[in-house]
């Protein structure tokens, strides 16, 4: 009767965070190219360089964030197993 037991979807979320990072690094490659054909809103070279670096920096931060979340997930997972082995209680989420 209860809803079927669900799988852990957090890995999907962690992949997403990493993908945001990859997307922002990917986007940084096109900034200079896309700036060439502008009629309105052309940016200076300084701006392009600064924005590009910031995109790459944030991309790297998101990927590091994803790795940290992955470590957290691993720690939680092993914690959950121990709790089950000793029958000391239910996992904190439930």
């Amino acid at each position: 009767m209860a809803a079927p037991k669900r799988k852990n979807h957090n890995w999907c979320g962690i992949t997403l965070v990493a993908l945001y990072g990859l997307f922002s690094i990917y986007a940084s490659f096109f900034l200079a190219y896309l700036n060439n054909g502008k009629i309105i809103g052309k940016l200076s070279n300084e701006a392009i360089v600064g924005i590009k670096e910031a995109f790459i920096m944030w991309g790297v931060i998101f990927i590091i964030g994803a790795i940290l979340l992955m470590i957290r997930e691993y720690v939680l997972k092993s914690g959950r197993k121990e709790a089950k082995d000793t029958e000391s209680g239910v996992s904190p989420h439930y």
């Binding site: 300084e46 701006a47 360089v49 600064g50 924005i51 670096e53 910031a54 995109f55 920096m57 944030w58």
Partner: peptide, 13 residues
Amino acid sequence: MNPYFLEYAIVGI
């Protein structure tokens, strides 16, 4: 420091 870099760094936060 490049002002654009600084702007985007803070906007990310």
